[in-house]
């Protein structure tokens, strides 16, 4: 708060002072008071006003500067009403009271929303686990009664299970807590687990996995990683051309182990490529094939981010798409003390 601004804000008071000063001057002059005396009275008037003005200015400046400083330093801005000292001037006290009430309202709403979100996530979690029981029962029934019809139902059950998994990982990706369990595994094990999940659509599309040099140890959360690889494989199946081939190869660098998943599919146009990880983005391919939800790669990116795995995508229209996952290397993690 600057004196100039404060004075400009009190222009009316100055106007009143000037008018009253002039009136006093005129009055005293009319009753023929000596000039020295008039000036003395005027100076008393003026000093009194300036003192009052400066005192008020000082009190406000002290309070508002403190307010700004706290606001800047505070992480949860809505808590400012709680930690502020009460000002010793009336308008400040009113403002303080309003701020407190507003903040309390905001904080209550925030807490409510957070609790709702938490409860919703818990419900979703329990729902996912509930729905798995009938899916498991139905798949067991088919396991015991395999024929062309039931096996087609099994394909649909696997799709349902895939969507249910997606819900689970969506909830997980939005959670603040990181519930991942990192264990020692190999790239081959991660890829195999994803291939088993997406075996049926891949086989039906005439697809063939090709591996090269995947016996490389990595530390990763098995389930989440195989979910991510599964999403990438499912994209390769969706956007395929004749003679689908999905290749998995590995590449060891100083600090990272890279898993390259490439297909010979329709590819992604350069205009769309930078946005494929955006939530809800479907692009040209998504519109043409109308099966895209724009969730798969978004989830991959988010989960990778949480697990410190790098994910990048390259593609050439008509040639195919390659997704690279870079896992931090074990030795690198050890050096970092993790």
């Amino acid at each position: 708060m600057k004196v100039k601004d404060y004075a400009a804000d009190h222009i009316f008071s100055f106007l009143c002072l000037s008018v009253s000063g002039l009136l006093v001057f005129a009055l005293l002059w009319l009753i023929e008071t000596p000039m020295v005396f008039i000036l003395f009275v005027e100076s008393i008037l003026f000093t009194a006003f300036v003192c009052a003005f400066l005192y008020d200015y000082w009190r406000r400046k002290k309070y508002y500067n403190q307010l700004w400083e706290i606001l800047d330093r505070l992480e949860e801005k809505t808590l400012i009403g709680e930690i502020l000292a009460r000002p010793d001037f009336l308008d400040g006290q009113i403002l303080d009271e309003i701020l407190r009430r507003c903040n309390k309202y905001q904080n209550d709403r925030l807490a409510d929303a957070e609790q709702n979100r938490q409860e919703y996530r818990e419900y979703l979690d329990s729902w996912v686990h509930e729905i798995k029981t009938p899916i498991a029962a139905a798949r067991l029934i088919i396991e015991n009664h395999k024929n062309p019809t039931t096996l087609r139902i099994d394909d649909e059950l696997r799709r349902i299970d895939g969507f249910v998994e997606q819900v689970l990982y969506y909830a997980r990706s939005a959670a603040v807590e990181k519930d991942f369990r990192v264990e020692k595994t190999t790239l081959q094990a991660l890829v195999n687990s994803a291939l088993k999940t997406y075996s049926k659509p891949l086989i039906q599309a005439g697809g063939r996995p090709v591996f090269s040099g995947l016996d490389i140890p990595v530390c990763a959360d098995m389930k989440s990683c195989s979910f991510i690889i599964g999403q990438i494989i499912s994209n390769s199946i969706k956007y395929r051309t004749e003679g689908l081939q999905v290749s998995f190869s590995a590449d060891v660098e100083q600090n990272a182990v890279r898993l390259l998943i490439s297909d010979n599919g329709i590819g992604i146009s350069p205009a769309d490529l930078s946005r494929v990880f955006d939530k809800g983005f479907t692009g040209d391919n998504g519109r043409r094939y109308s099966k895209s939800t724009g969730i798969g790669l978004y989830l991959c990116k988010k989960l990778c981010g949480k697990m410190n795995i790098g994910i990048t995508i390259q593609s050439e229209l008509g040639q195919g798409t390659a997704v690279t996952l870079s896992f931090p290397r074990e030795s690198y993690l050890q050096e970092a003390g993790l």
Binding site: P148, K196, S199, I203
Partner: peptide, 21 residues
């Protein structure tokens, strides 16, 4: 699954499940 017809893709899938791709 004696007496039931097992489609080719189901046989391939069964082998994939034991990691024979």
């Amino acid at each position: 699954n004696k007496g039931n017809i097992i489609p080719r893709d189901a046989i391939i899938d069964d082998l994939w499940q034991s990691e024979e791709f």
